[in-house]
Design a protein around this nucleic acid. Structure first.
Lengths: 239, 239
DNA sequence: ACGTATTTGTTCGTATGTATC
DNA sequence: GGATACATACGAACAAATACG
């Protein structure tokens, strides 16, 4: 398998071989690589040599080592562009994947200051909070909460359930166009529900974005709070 | 302290009192509140009643409860705006704080594809990687790695050490103006060094931004990789 | 690596006052 | 007044996360 006399170092040959396995989908994103000891046996080299190869792969971003767990093939990062006109469905379709939004639950509550201010409504106005799970080809990409004034969008939940798309649901409510005003980004550890639905280890953070959608006239329509698994998604802002 | 007959519910009175303590700076951002049991003793009510008050405060964002640790007065989030012209020093000065960048270490290495491509240089070109800790009024706000071609900016490290500002150091190298092309955002758990220097619990994630700075003609100058403590900093993108 | 103590989170059950029909 | 629903308040126990030796 390895040649000790072709000018290439052993660790480089090992790294190339593992890289080839990844490209050939023998090892798939998220898979655990064999343990360092197993690789040592398989290639007939010292553990240091294996570690040198793994370090090179980790450096190039192909794998990620986690102390005590193992080494894993790095997920191809979904680069999620965020612009004034970000639409989840379009973003996913551009990657030749099939987007789908599933409504997890709907809650009605009275708006506190946190929601009332950006929506420019009175504190105490009844708002509707719709929790959705967004998938691409069935794979969970994000959870999102959409908060809007109930009186203004009474049917949006049914429309969303029917189409699986916020853009479509807003269109049904008469909103021809909307855009994203501002996006705040932070990160935290996932809730138990998020670990379950996003298929995330509980030590892996989620990226949290909070944004306000406004119509063409600048009137606030909805607040969206999205949570992305930070391992698999990279947000890309282009001003 | 509490009145059981003035029309206001007990839990609301408790919440108001704690809120007053926070406003009066008796309890300061980051401080741990008394435990629920201490509060039950102090107010002479059931634990449920205390929890109801704390839940209201947590809902309004005044405090944050952490299972097993306690309940803490929420830090005022530093809203860090990211635009084409983001300058750390200016951002901090606008908040009437004093910015300072401290060079932690400098490494020279040959660029691999990850750096060479965005900098538009050949793989193998010697680049300089400068690691800095950025503070506002002495308090750590971010760690950053700045990567640039050594041959193009041979003196930037000394200039940065002298001024504590990247803008100033670039100006000394003849760059009058520069802007941020694109920003990629992700999150992960902090390295041991990051937990130490950013004064972060090891379970609290860091926000990682990666951006390319270009000069007025669009020529890449440097790559910046910044790490912000996610529970103290919120990135704000306005397109 | 493991047990213990501390602290918040959750879920039972019970009682009381208030508003509504 | 009586029946009902709802929010408030109290009691007890257990679960889960964390800190610490």
């Amino acid at each position: 398998m390895l040649s000790r006399s072709d000018g290439k170092t052993l660790w480089r040959q090992i790294a190339l071989q593992i890289e080839a396995d990844i490209r050939a989908q023998v090892l798939r994103p998220g898979d655990k690589l064999p343990t360092e000891w197993e690789l040592t046996a398989r290639f007939g080299v010292n553990r240091h040599t294996v570690r040198r190869a793994l370090a090179a792969l980790a450096d190039s971003g192909a794998v990620r080592a986690e102390q005590g767990r193992g080494t894993f093939v790095q997920q191809g990062l979904l680069e999620y562009p965020i612009t004034r006109k970000t639409r989840f469905s379009e973003t996913i379709r551009k990657r030749a994947q099939e987007p789908l939004g599933e409504v997890l639950r709907v809650a009605e509550e009275r708006a506190n200051g946190r929601f009332a201010a950006p929506l420019e409504i009175e504190v105490g106005t009844v708002v509707c909070q719709m929790e959705v799970l967004r998938r691409a080809d069935g794979f969970p990409i994000a959870m999102a909460s959409h908060v809007f004034e109930r009186a203004r969008f009474p049917c949006i939940v049914e429309d969303y359930r029917a189409s699986g798309s916020l853009t479509e649901a807003l269109k049904a409510a008469g909103v021809r166009d909307y855009s994203r005003l501002q996006t705040k980004v932070t990160a935290r550890l996932p809730s138990p529900e998020e670990t379950r639905l996003l298929k995330l280890a509980k030590t892996r953070p989620v990226l949290v974005t909070e944004s306000v959608d406004v119509d063409a006239a600048g009137v606030p329509l909805a607040i969206s709070i999205s949570r992305f698994p930070a391992d698999r998604v990279q947000l890309v802002f282009e001003p």
